[in-house]
Nucleic acid binder design. Structure first.
Length: 563
RNA sequence: GCCCCCGUAGUUCAACGGAUAGAACAUUGGGUUUCUAACCCAACGACGUAGGUUCGAUUCCUACCGGGGGUACCA
């Protein structure tokens, strides 16, 4: 936080800092935070410390510094209330953003991030559940890039495991080549669902499935060909969705790549005495404070965990990242605890920062969605529904737009709306899937932000002179509050990155847009008589649009120039 | 059984241990001869229960109640 304050108040080439901050070396990051106080407090900003000593020290320092940005300092309990020199602050803040444009808020952390996300299972269409991993992962990737990380995006496909044995069995029993050719993902899903149903009646077919997997792991040529034919069309289908979301992975990998390496790691575990023998060829691991788990099946096949272990080792070896993130649902928390604990024992992790970033389930009627029970909603279905709704509304509200524009804008609004509806929630918590909420285009939606952006674009297109005044000025509180909110953007990005919480950016953008719309509704911008004030207001609006656009870009959401 | 997560307006969600708990939707009442009313203004309305720690608890701890998830040959 100190760094944050320093960064902001001491931009290079900007005469813009508090001299007292030079003395802050003795105070650590965690001691002070910068807040915008609640509305009933008069101060512009508040520094907060939990340590009365630091509090007193700081407020005295600030008072003594007599810098031109602060008119008054008042200590109040744990707070140091700062009363800014509003004119100076307003001018400098806007000038700073004008100079930086969309690089405003960029940080210079020079580190490497490896992030695994989306990671769908082959032979199943992308469902609403995968949306979370996909959009949270992409947002976190961009948030880190904004902080200065170099990011490697990997999509680790679920392309191995007993589910493939099941699929092979189902295909051999009930498969129809023509149907599969017509619509591969749909037909393969049907086969999988059929297997689940049949296995309820006859448990023994699950053994058949495991046998097929075992054959696959031993390199059965006929089965490998079949596997290949299942995998390819799925990947093609996934890529269509990623393109629609504007997501590009650096690599598509899959569990299938790690069968060999995981067998080696299993041997290593045996050598080191990390596991005990169980029934057949099965191996069991027991680690402190964790439930014991299986390392190898009794028929000698690998498991999800062992393949993941090999993948982790491979990633560290190939990329040597400072940080590794797994964007995977909370229901796999135990799996990752076990994985990381075992990797520690094997000295794979060492001093690397490896983290499971979990997220809540998307519930339907309070229950987990299930492909088998047909309660899952397909991602493509949601996008199509949302886009067609936005198209309808555009027809209604903006009939004058060209046909091409309508099409383009409805795609931007429809997709953005779905993505935003997911990201705006605290990722740890479960989400109740609600069509009305997904398709809501009012306050608290991406469309609200996009609409605000389009409004600003409209103003900018109307003005003939948008030159930047030497000194930017303002007249009312609404304008000044907007400057304060713009000022805080880099801090929001920081917090959002540190805690891996994209929803913080959503809340921020909603507040910002709301403040702007309030300003817009109460003040005329282009009819302002005083020309200096008018130009200042145009700049204010413009910089709000810069931050909204950049904020949404980080969340993976586009903005339309009109709507 | 054991482990993990979650209980905030009628509903869906916010709130680094801090100031009078914020929004949106719904409901009620206002606003457009002037920059996009997909908007703005106003009213109404909430921390599951009981203790504890703290100058201060929605936030941390304990118990209970309620919901969800996980728990070895799925991923």
């Amino acid at each position: 936080m100190i760094n944050f304050i320093k960064n902001i108040f001491s931009q290079k080439n900007e005469d813009f800092y508090f001299s007292f901050l030079k003395d802050l070396e003795t105070v650590t990051e965690k001691d002070v935070t910068l807040n915008i106080p609640p509305s009933h407090i008069e101060a512009d900003f508040a520094l907060m410390t939990n340590n009365p000593k630091i509090n007193k020290y700081l407020s005295n320092k600030i008072k003594d510094s007599k810098n031109k940005y602060i008119d008054e300092v008042k200590a109040a309990g744990p707070f140091i209330n700062l009363f800014l020199n509003k004119k100076t602050f307003y001018n400098k803040t806007l000038k700073n953003i004008i100079a930086r444009e969309n690089s405003y808020g960029n940080n210079k952390i020079n580190k490497k991030l490896f992030i695994e996300y989306s990671s769908p299972n082959i032979a199943k269409p992308l469902g609403i559940g995968h949306l979370r991993s996909t959009v949270i992962g992409e947002a976190l990737a961009k948030i880190h890039e904004k902080q200065g990380y170099r990011v490697f995006r990997e999509n680790y496909l679920g392309d191995w495991g007993t589910q493939f044995g099941k699929l092979v069995y189902a295909y051999k029993e009930w498969g129809n080549d023509e149907e599969i050719k017509k619509n591969p993902t749909k037909e393969l899903k049907n086969l999988y669902v059929r297997f689940q149903k049949e296995s309820e009646k006859d448990k023994s077919i699950e053994d058949n499935a495991r046998e097929f997997l075992n054959k696959l792991e031993n390199g059965d040529k006929e089965l490998m060909k079949l596997w290949e034919s299942f995998r390819e069309p799925s990947v093609v289908g996934f890529k269509k969705t990623y393109t629609r979301l504007g997501i590009k992975f650096d690599r598509f990998s899959g569990e299938s790549e790690y069968v060999k390496q995981s067998l080696d790691l299993i041997n290593e575990c045996e050598k080191r005495g990390l596991c005990e023998k169980g029934e057949g060829k099965s191996l069991i691991v027991e680690l402190d404070g964790l439930p014991s788990f299986l390392l190898r099946k009794k028929d000698g096949s690998t498991l999800y965990l062992t393949r993941d272990l090999a993948a982790l080792k491979d990633r560290i070896k190939n990329h040597n990242p400072d940080k590794i993130l797994y964007i995977v649902g909370n229901e796999q928390k135990l799996h990752f605890r076990q994985l990381f604990a075992l990797a520690e024992k094997l000295k794979i992790i060492e001093d690397h920062n490896v983290e499971h970033v979990g997220y809540g389930l998307i519930l339907s009627n309070g229950k987990k969605m299930s492909t088998r029970k047909g309660t899952t909603v397909m991602l493509s279905e949601i996008f199509n529904e949302s886009v067609s709704k936005s198209k309808k509304i555009i027809e209604e509200k903006s009939p004058e737009l060209l046909k091409e524009e309508k099409k383009e804008i409805s795609e931007i609004l429809g997709v953005g709306s779905v993505v935003y509806n997911d990201l705006r929630h605290d990722r740890e918590k479960d989400i109740n899937f609600d069509w009305d909420k997904v398709l809501s285009f009012e306050g608290g939606s991406a469309v609200y932000l996009q609409y605000t952006y389009a409004r600003i674009m409209s103003i900018i297109n109307k003005v003939s002179n948008d030159s930047i005044p030497h000194k930017l000025t303002f007249e009312n509180d609404l304008e000044f509050d907007l400057a304060k909110q713009l000022f805080i953007f880099p801090k929001i990005l920081n917090i959002s990155c540190e805690n891996e919480e994209p929803h913080k950016i959503c809340s921020y953008l909603e507040d910002l847009a709301q403040s702007f719309n309030s300003f817009y509704g109460n003040t005329s911008i282009i009819n302002t008589e005083n020309s200096n004030l008018k130009l200042s207001r145009i700049q204010l609006a413009k910089q709000v649009s810069v931050v909204i656009k950049e904020g949404l870009r980080i969340l993976g959401i586009a903005v339309p120039n009109k709507m």
